[in-house]
Simulated scan of single mutants.
Amino acid sequence: MYIKDNYKDIFMSAVLTMHNEESYLDQCIETVLNQDHENFEFIIVDDGSTDRSCEIAESYHDNRIKLYRNRQNYIKSLNLGISKASGKYIAHIDADDMMYKSRFTEQIRYMEEHSDVDISGAFMESFGRLNIDYTAPTENLRIVSDLLWAVQIFHPVMMFRTSSLITHHMKEQLYNPQCPLCEDYDLLVSSALQGMSFGNIPKKLVHYRLSDKQLTCAKGKQVKYYMLQTRKKYYDYIVSSLLNHHKENYKPAIQSLTDRYVRKEINKNGYLQGLSDLYYQYLTEVR
């Protein structure tokens, strides 16, 4: 369905980082160039590819495309792309995914109508190895609280407000080089700790490719290690916040959750969800 672009004059940046993506790159590039919002720059950062990825990118004669080359270092390449972006908004693109034609229009409209949101996302669906519908909370406080147990804004459909990144001194190094393989989760937790606001559009805007090539499959143990490190940082912050705010109310609740977990009445996910519910309650009280 065609979506009228009421903000067609807004200039935005689409940023794609690629490493040996010749198999799917042309499909991804075409879904970017064919967006119904046309006023954007398309920044492609090559992360040390040894296949035909750069050749494929250069075969598109579209003046919106800007190709940069970097030695293989995924986090540095991600940060390079963000640092080069000059649009009002920055959309992250995964090099093997495909987007709904209205993705940019939908997200720009959302960001314009929600001026308090610093980072937005949307729902998405996977294809390839598995077919899964990915949904997440849409409201900021729920996203912030539920970050304790999982990513709540999906990286393939993430959009940033550039002015917010500049204000929080994040534009030159948005992604943490000390947290490879889990950079999206660390980014969201770090943003939440700085008081940034989030939102999700309750529509599927990206076709997310699942394949055995992906790092989450190939390096699962390392991904888990970095995710646990990031989660611990957020867990410590949340517990400290709860105990510093009406300790007499939250301490017994935390202890009750802990006791239930020790007695195996709830599993780890149940414990984390219970703690995130307490944090959500806390956030609604103080904001």
Rank of each mutant, 00 (worst) to 15 (best):
Phe127Ser: 13
Arg129Ala: 13
Leu130Glu: 15
Leu130Ala: 14
Leu130Thr: 12
Leu130Arg: 14
Asn131Ser: 14
Asn131Lys: 13
Ile132Trp: 01
Tyr134His: 14
Tyr134Val: 14
Pro137Glu: 07
Pro137Trp: 08
Thr138Ser: 11
Thr138Gln: 11
Glu139Lys: 13
Glu139Ile: 15
Leu141Cys: 13
Leu141Val: 08
Leu141Gly: 07
Arg142Met: 12
Arg142Ile: 12
Val144Met: 08
Val144Ser: 02
Val144Cys: 05
Asp146Phe: 10
Leu148Glu: 03
Trp149Tyr: 15
Ala150Met: 10
Ala150Pro: 00
Val151Met: 11
Val151Asn: 06
Gln152Trp: 06
Ile153Trp: 01
Phe154Asn: 11
Pro156Val: 04
Val157Leu: 02
Met158His: 06
Met158Gln: 14
Met158Trp: 06
Met159Ser: 08
Arg161Cys: 11
Arg161Gln: 10
Arg161Tyr: 05
Arg161Asp: 14
Ser164Phe: 04
Ser164Cys: 07
Ser164Gln: 02
Ser164Pro: 08
Leu165Ala: 05
Ile166Thr: 10
Thr167Ile: 04
His168Cys: 04
His168Pro: 06
Lys171Phe: 09
Lys171Val: 14
Gln173Ala: 10
Leu174Glu: 06
Leu174Gly: 04
Leu174Asn: 09
Tyr175Ser: 03
Tyr175Val: 01
Asn176Thr: 03
Gln178Ala: 10
Gln178Lys: 14
Cys179Trp: 00
Pro180Ala: 10
Leu181Asn: 05
Asp184Lys: 06
Tyr185Asp: 00
Leu187Gln: 07
Val189Asn: 00
Ser190Leu: 04
Ser190Asp: 11
Ser190Trp: 00
Ser191Leu: 08
Ala192Arg: 02
Ala192Asn: 03
Leu193His: 02
Gln194Ile: 05
Gln194Gly: 07
Gln194Ala: 15
Ser197Asn: 13
Ser197Trp: 00
Gly199Glu: 03
Asn200Arg: 11
Ile201Phe: 06
Ile201Met: 14
Ile201Asn: 07
